[in-house]
Design a protein around this nucleic acid. Structure first.
Lengths: 378, 378
DNA sequence: GGTCAGGATGAATCAGGAG
DNA sequence: ACTCCTGATTCATCCTGAC
């Protein structure tokens, strides 16, 4: 599982095996089945919601609410919708790389069926995410709670997939607190909302902020993202902005046209596929080279025979010439003896053990940092 | 459809057709099948979540996380879980009156299967509700988003059911804004968390505030609520507090015992005293979040029936279950009645109204500060 | 008595790589 | 598919006990 960017090992994105950054007009199942197996990193899908609007809804003052009543959202029954869902999920799963993942979005009308079908298809759910709308449409009739959210599901291709998650980028985005599963994001309005002849171009255009967070969390620059229900192309627009590749599939010509114009007019973030560009996001310590404790002893930063103690001065151990420790009759690594001292199953010896210098306790981790600086990041 | 309280036309609850306010020990499917058809108003179900925990999880400092690994949450496969779900949903639907409704709660592990099964069984989904936890467990490994919510589904027995929804009570609880589908409520901890011999009595006890909002929104006094997975009896406790009847079904004797003692020790709505422990909570200075007065009532910080007075003791009003006030024949929000009492166009009810405690007058604002501290700024 | 530091804990599908 | 080793990883809240 990649939990961070590996900036030091940054490789120029390999040329994609398939043509990307384009929109395929047609049925998404056929289009995905025409692609090679295991060739894309992420699928983002905003399938028809199967809304069941039997009647027209009017606003309190009499205006008619513009409802989603397009042909593409007409299904005869739950069974028909389920069959359709299974078909596109199967096609999507086939084109995903083994460590690939999928995101879907929906409302209570369809999300339970999509979620169950995901599980049945072998996907492994990682999180369900609540998009809390900052400005939802009220419930005009006062008959239910204001429907103020939609649900996204994030799932790996399989239970054992080493999916990508840019943990530190998400944490940085949330002021150094873990990103939660509930996201407060405004709906798509104003200048972002695409219009043709003054009326909204698509009834369910998603905000770019939503896709931004999804793509930033689960892909890296150069990755290929497929959106089988492309609509006005929000996924493609954000992918281009973030230096990801996209393939959009859309059945209706008018939406293809809108999306093409939208994406063509966008400039990607400058910097290209280079380290130091605006695409760089926070990485964790795992991106750094692993340093064996023995290297510190070998280099003279820590002398054999040095006495190590814990912050509470309850335990002590001695450094041996080979980088192992001894604590009474016990010997072992800094981690093993740290765990043994505390009676815990595991322990990070780098932060547990300290050296007393001039009356102060210095953690081994500080010594490691000094060593790192001396050898560089290579 | 009942969209409001009809306090003036309040009819004395008819004697229930079946014995209520009791706990049945045994299998919930058999127990519900033994009841007459169409005899209850609401079902609240907190079924097993089908967690599939393969490994032990340790905290960063080494502590072990207490996981849900009870027998009652063991299912061999999705198919087995689905079969179980269909069976209890069918039994629950049979005992519901034609205009009855159901609430279920779950996490991403099971909620999609339960939601789809609800639709397949003929229930008509009205809302999905997100319980946003004010203090969720973090993701220790940094591999996913913090799982900070659970999902509830509210569904009518059928598409044509004239289900109950106390729209104005919900709106009053939210300070005259429509209640949204995302609810911020703390998890069940502290004095509310039931313990036996110092350890938690049940791994998944739900907070009373959650049930309070559900029962207040979708039932009226005298209604019968069935909870087929009763556990420690939160549904029964809140039902008793709010003057609703309950029937709890629970398989495990130890939980039946805990729930019986819990409910027996409760005083119903009229005679309530203030809980003392919540007062001592530190008051952080978090200014931004708007707190509806109804949240304080729901959380137990202010009990329905509490008498409010102004600092000069010239006016008094009574707190109603939905967070509105009554003053003689008048009802309204804390601000509306504060303004009416003084003959002013507006009034800050938070600073005007006070509660007498141990001879001292405590402003509602102080109560709000306590509540704020309990939910954080999220 | 009040304050503050430290410990405990909550429905969790919770690591990655070498051998 | 398995074991073993390394070492990365936490937020809000409540409760207890020290001072």
């Amino acid at each position: 599982m990649t939990h961070r960017w590996r900036m030091s090992k940054f490789k120029a994105p390999a040329a994609p095996a398939i043509a990307t950054d384009r929109i395929i007009r047609g049925d998404c199942i056929a289009a995905m089945n025409a692609m090679p197996e295991a060739c894309v990193d992420l699928v983002f899908a905003d399938p028809p919601y199967n809304l069941q609007l039997a009647h027209n809804l009017h606003r309190p003052e009499g205006g008619k609410v513009a409802a989603v009543d397009d042909d593409w959202d007409k299904f005869a029954s739950y069974a028909t919708y389920d069959e359709f869902t299974r078909a596109w999920l199967t096609a999507a799963r086939r084109i995903l790389k083994p460590d690939g993942a999928i995101w879907t979005i929906g409302s209570y009308h369809n999300i339970f069926r999509v979620g169950a079908a995901l599980q049945d298809a072998g996907f492994w759910i990682l999180n369900d995410i609540v998009w809390r709308k900052a400005n939802p449409m009220p419930n005009f009739k006062g008959t239910r709670f204001t429907n103020a959210h939609e649900t996204l599901i994030w799932a790996a291709k399989s239970e054992t997939a080493k999916y990508k998650f840019n943990y530190h980028a998400m944490k940085a985005m949330n002021e150094e607190l873990q990103m939660r599963s509930d996201w407060l994001i405004p709906i798509c309005t104003g200048g972002e909302r695409l219009k043709t002849d003054g009326v909204k171009a698509h009834p369910t255009q998603k905000p770019e902020a939503l896709l931004y967070r999804v793509l930033l969390a689960c892909t890296e620059p150069g990755d290929i993202v497929v959106d089988p229900f492309f609509g006005t192309g929000t996924t493609g627009a954000v992918a281009k902005l973030l230096g990801r590749h996209f393939i959009g599939i859309e059945r209706e010509e008018k939406y293809v046209k809108v999306a093409e114009e939208r994406i063509a007019s966008l400039l990607p973030l400058s910097g290209g596929d280079m380290p130091g560009s605006a695409w760089e996001v926070s990485q964790g310590k795992r991106g750094e080279t692993r340093i064996p404790f023995g290297s510190l002893v070998e280099s003279g930063l820590v002398r054999p025979g040095t006495r190590l103690i814990d912050p509470q001065r309850r335990h002590q151990a001695e450094v041996r010439a080979d980088g192992s420790l001894s604590m009474g009759a016990k010997t072992g690594s800094i981690h093993q003896l740290g765990a043994a001292a505390q009676g815990l199953p595991s322990c990070n010896g780098w932060t547990f053990w300290h050296i007393e210098e001039a009356g102060k306790l210095v953690p081994l981790d500080a010594k490691r940092a000094v060593y790192r600086a001396s050898v560089g990041s290579a």
